[in-house]
Computed example of a mutant assay.
Amino acid sequence: MKLAIGMRNIKTALAVLICLLISKVFNLEYPFYAVIATIIAMENSVTNSYTVGKNRVMGTIVGAVFGMGFALIDPHSAIFSAVGIVVVIYICNLLKWNKSVSIASIVFLAIMLNLRPGENPWFYGMNRVLDTLIGIGVAVIINYLVFPPNHERNMEQRRKILRQRLTVLSHELLAEGGGVHISSLKKDMSELEKVYEIYTSEFHLNKKKRTIMDHLEEEIDIYHNTYSHMRMLRLLTDEPPQAVESKPQVDFKFSSPPARPLTVHGEDLLMIYRYHVRCILQDLTQLGLMLPTKIAPPLNLRKELSGEHKNVNRIND
């Protein structure tokens, strides 16, 4: 169990503190809305903080505009609250602000239901927009200035884990001739891609860093290519020998060309197996990873090949 307090946790608390101090200095009546905005906008990257904040601002504006309009007609009305929600959601969808629907609805209802007798709806609505802007601004600034997320370090860690896993699994798979589970490799690739996507979306990437990211993108493509060949080896070698031999006999005397015997099928399987082995070795070489010292024949042809090749340590063409 991970018990350490993360930096995002600390930055969120710092952003809340600053929002409350700003609310006190400017005598904001509802600091709660600024605090909520800053908590929601504190994301795992500066770009994500900005994106979440932007969606919240757009939703707040839509909710505030219609909330003020409906509140002028009849605040606290259940009928108008329901009709207003329909309108707010429709407008957000019309503008393709789908991620702003929830906050727009919340702001609309906050104005409709929390408006005190005699309070000006326009004044109340504009204050909600101001609170949101303060909270989002604080979150983005804190995320950018105070220990910004170190995506380079995270990427290098995920890359190191993936390369180690790929080396181990590829060596085991080729040494055994199949029969090795490789699903963990796909999970490691997914983790690396997540960090990669977050980092490439950041604002502050310079030309040198973008060159590094382009190189990493090419490397990720090779990882996927290697995984595909390794998966094909699993599919080729998962079928036990008796499954091939016990296939029902079909009379092909009327077919053209005539059916090919099982021995040719086995040779085809070995040829495909060799092809994927060569591709894996080429990918490992391109990635600068250690090549396996032993490559066994496929598991489901081991008995058949043992009669023809008594000493098969490496598959070569």
Results as ranks from 00 to 15, higher is better:
D251C: 04
D251K: 03
D251R: 04
F252L: 02
F252S: 08
K253T: 08
K253P: 06
F254N: 13
F254T: 11
S255H: 10
S255G: 09
S255W: 12
S255V: 14
S256M: 05
S256W: 07
S256K: 03
P257Q: 03
P257W: 00
P257E: 01
P257C: 00
P257Y: 03
P257M: 00
P258W: 03
P258N: 02
A259H: 13
R260K: 15
R260V: 15
P261H: 04
P261E: 09
P261C: 04
L262T: 10
L262C: 09
L262I: 14
T263Q: 14
T263G: 10
T263E: 15
T263H: 13
V264N: 06
V264M: 14
V264T: 13
H265S: 06
H265V: 04
G266L: 12
G266W: 15
G266I: 14
G266F: 15
G266A: 05
E267D: 11
E267L: 15
D268P: 07
L269M: 11
L269C: 05
L269F: 01
L269P: 00
L270M: 14
L270I: 05
L270D: 03
L270Y: 09
M271A: 13
M271F: 13
M271V: 07
M271K: 11
M271L: 05
I272W: 07
I272V: 15
I272M: 12
I272K: 03
I272L: 14
Y273V: 02
Y273M: 01
Y273L: 01
R274K: 15
R274D: 12
R274G: 14
R274W: 11
R274T: 14
Y275E: 05
V277A: 00
V277W: 01
V277T: 07
V277K: 00
R278V: 10
R278P: 05
R278F: 10
C279K: 12
C279N: 13
C279I: 15
C279E: 15
C279W: 09
I280A: 00
I280T: 02
I280V: 07
L281A: 05
L281N: 06
L281T: 07
L281P: 06
Q282E: 11
Q282R: 14
D283P: 01
L284G: 02
L284D: 00
L284C: 02
L284K: 01
L284P: 01
L284M: 09
L284Q: 02
T285H: 06
T285A: 06
T285R: 11
T285M: 08
T285Q: 10
Q286K: 06
Q286D: 10
Q286I: 10
L287C: 00
G288H: 03
G288I: 03
L289R: 02
L289K: 02
L289P: 02
M290L: 10
M290E: 12
M290Y: 05
L291D: 06
L291I: 07
L291H: 03
L291A: 04
